Simulated assay, not measured.
Amino acid sequence: MLPTRIYQFKQTGIPEEAKMIFHGDFEEAERLGGVIWEELGYDTFVIQNPEWEPAGWRDHVLCVREQQIADGLEVDKLWDADKKFTWPWSDRLFKSRSAAMSRVNAIRYWGGTAELVEASLFWETTKDANARRKARRDQVRVEKLRAKIRAIEGAPDDLPF
């Protein structure tokens, strides 16, 4: 059965100590910090300091790495001991609320802010969807033509043309 609801999360902030002011062009700011959190003016942005990591991150990396080794994960798939901190990717859609909420909780755990969002779905065949959109476009055209007719009918009869 197809889901009627999907979930996503939106990260809304990072800890103040993770922020840095960057002076330069937009593309360079994105490359350096990943996300532009605020634009302060021409060529001045608030980005995440690429060197920042939350308190406890190093211990977390080592703990995960030890668990991966204990689980027998292949060496080339182990986390590097010097793994850089990254926030969860926010471009994914989730079928379950709990999966999306786990990302929100991870962001909050590491000091950021995030909110859970959902969308209600209405499933229909592509054929039906195309027919519905075409009917809507046709209705808009009919309304425009009716407006023109009303304007013409309401115009004075003594026009010089």
Rank of each mutant, 00 (worst) to 15 (best):
P3S: 14
I6E: 15
P15C: 06
E16Y: 06
E16A: 12
M20L: 08
M20P: 00
M20E: 14
I21D: 04
I21M: 11
G24Q: 14
G24C: 03
D25L: 02
E30A: 06
L32S: 08
G33M: 11
G34K: 11
V35F: 10
V35W: 13
I36Q: 04
W37K: 14
L40A: 01
L40D: 04
Y42K: 11
D43P: 02
I47T: 02
R58G: 01
D59H: 03
H60Y: 15
H60T: 10
V61R: 02
V64T: 14
V64M: 12
Q68H: 05
I69V: 13
G72D: 05
D76V: 00
D76H: 12
L78I: 00
D80Q: 04
D82R: 02
K83I: 02
K84P: 00
K84G: 08
F85D: 03
T86Y: 09
S90Y: 04
D91I: 06
L93D: 09
F94P: 11
S96Q: 06
R97D: 08
A99F: 11
S102D: 10
R103W: 04
N105C: 06
A106Y: 15
Y109C: 01
A114G: 11
E115Q: 03
W123R: 09
T125D: 15
T126V: 03
T126F: 04
K127V: 13
D128A: 13
N130K: 15
N130A: 05
R132V: 09
R132L: 07
A135C: 00
R136Y: 14
L145V: 08
K148T: 04
R150E: 12
A151S: 01
E153Y: 10
A155I: 09
D157F: 03
D158W: 00
F161I: 05
